[in-house]
Nucleic acid binder design. Structure first.
Lengths: 202, 202
DNA sequence: GTCTATACCTAGATAGAC
DNA sequence: GTCTATCTAGGTATAGAC
């Protein structure tokens, strides 16, 4: 009797866990955190509710993992763009555009990450990730100031404002997700973000 | 036997109801919506849990009333300032300042109104009030544009951005609520808001 | 009209069979 | 390891005494 799991066993368990996270993410994107009960998630994954606890010690732990994976992808993506090519103002504009497009492509998930009512554990995680967004924006603002592209300002406040502004604009896009509306939204939001940081109007 | 309540009875009931709302508001400000159980609120008001249902048909109804009262005061206050004296840019700056100071004076309540995890009924109300904030800001931006004080822009987007930016900056004020920090925060946030609307830097 | 006690419901978590 | 069935806790809402 093996006292240690075989590689095959480990990878199967990993796969099941990953699958569970993926299904839970879809459920959350569709119905929100409040309605994403253990039963609902288990059903979506095609397993019994009790089996969830083979992979996660609690519902909160699963929810936090779902949030971290999804939010982590967004932060990473934004970080790449903001740290990419071009001057600070160009990177900021590009970052806002990418963030906006990604959110509009998956509104359910974006809403869940940004604003949907959630248990305290997820709320705490959301707070932490908002700080990461702020840090990314603050760095770009600092670079823009250093390069003389942006006026003197408090980069932390501007970064928080950008984080909140983009979130608020995206969370309640009243209209339908038509292509034209999306393009206009991207243009208007980018312009507003640039003004917020004090970039000269194009 | 009276088939109709006497004025004294009515006013006593009204007073009890008002008192309950007031106590519930304090509890929410202190511990948030999630921890504000019927029992906790009743304890704070010095009545039995069951007695709450003499005044409200459900916990959700009480929570919504608490939110409406508190949020209504803030919207009204902001509306007065934004619709007061001075040109559009001055009014916007003054509005941001008043909003910020009021929030910092009662952080617990401000957090509850802006961001604290809450039941769906309250979340819906929050959404509605954010739209009212947007409407107020949008009107000022439109006036500023009409007066030639603000550049051409989408007032709805700018208004949403202002709403989100101010909320985000206020919800996580990391430092202690010292007087100096408050003044600096007010100055920086006001400057950021004005930039966001495209007002010339002072 | 207010209190005490309790019913009830929802949803998370567990135990034991297979 | 997974499923079925069950247990439990927390909190809303109600019934009946005073």
């Amino acid at each position: 009797m093996a006292y240690r799991k075989t590689p095959a066993e480990i990878s199967r368990l990993e796969a099941a866990r990953e699958r569970l996270i993926g299904c839970a993410t879809e459920v959350v994107a569709e119905v929100g955190w409040a309605q994403a009960s253990v039963t609902a998630v288990a059903d979506a994954a095609g397993i019994a509710a009790g089996s969830v606890y083979q992979h996660f010690p609690s519902k909160a732990a699963l929810a936090v993992e779902v949030f971290r994976r999804a939010a982590g992808r967004e932060v990473e993506m934004l970080g790449k763009v903001l740290g990419g090519a071009g001057d600070a103002v160009e990177r900021l504009a590009h970052g806002v555009e990418v963030f906006t497009r990604r959110a509009l492509e998956n509104r359910g998930l974006a809403y869940a990450l940004l604003a949907a009512p959630a248990e305290p554990a997820v709320g705490a995680e959301r707070l932490a990730f908002r700080l990461r967004y702020r840090a990314l924006f603050a760095e770009v603002v600092r670079e823009g100031m250093a390069a003389g592209l942006l006026p003197r300002q408090n980069p932390e406040i501007t970064a928080a404002a950008l984080t909140g502004a983009i979130g608020e604009v995206l969370v309640h896009p009243l209209g339908a997700p038509e292509e034209l509306a999306t393009e206009q939204l991207v243009a208007d939001l980018t312009a507003t973000a640039l003004r917020c940081a004090g970039a000269p109007t194009a």
